[in-house]
Design a protein around this nucleic acid. Sequence first.
DNA 1: TTGACGTGCAACCACCGGTTGCGTTGAGGC
DNA 2: GCCTCAACGCAACCGGTGGTTGCACGTCAA
Lengths: 112, 112
Amino acid sequence: MSTTIDDDLWSAVGDPTRRRMLDLLLADGGGTATTLSKQLPVTRQAVAKHLGVLDRVGLVHVTPAGRERRYEVDEAQLARAVAQLSAVGATWDARLQRIKRIAERIQRGKQG
Amino acid sequence: MSTTIDDDLWSAVGDPTRRRMLDLLLADGGGTATTLSKQLPVTRQAVAKHLGVLDRVGLVHVTPAGRERRYEVDEAQLARAVAQLSAVGATWDARLQRIKRIAERIQRGKQG
DNA sequence: TTGACGTGCAACCACCGGTTGCGTTGAGGC
DNA sequence: GCCTCAACGCAACCGGTGGTTGCACGTCAA
């Protein structure tokens, strides 16, 4: 239970370049592989591949416009990903808290 | 600003197998490559590699005991990782909120 | 029509998660 | 003291993926 998340979504958001791309797309309200590649330290082709990944998991959607392919973030889907992210964080946080409490109890038991 | 996180830490926690390993180590209060591999669908060698990664970023520390090498989670470091995780989540959440507000304003502007 | 720009496709490379295989070393029974 | 077994480390290898270069195709504009 719990830690079981959409592994595709996670791995999509897990890549640093893809995170930066999402960031840029959000900031600029969309973009193409070419415009993104100009703001990133990777080639257009690399960006295109990433856009394919993001598209496949529904984090972006594409609108063909003439010779361009404009991508925009699917905010709802990104919100889902972010939610799952914090869910995982929360799970671990909870477990850490529990461990800490148990450890303290043991310490107290030893001393008392 | 903001999305700048320890990339090593992130990628260490980013791997699903490593997440499960941390989970198991927390649950059992430590373990060796062999004991972990028995609870995971991967070989001891794979686990050993992952433990190396986790050790390098300080998420676990190792205690040689005879012919065994016992690993335990560094809870403070894991707490840091979790914190950064939720920080990223929070950043995106905030940006999404902002975008949403702007979008609504535009909508209202169009209609009014 | 021609040139420039944006794209897609394919081949190639490097890194990484995973495996198998083998050699080493420590704990314990004979 | 030896021999065996268990845990480990190291090295070679394989498949997937992020990244690159190179090239061919469509589209917009002069």
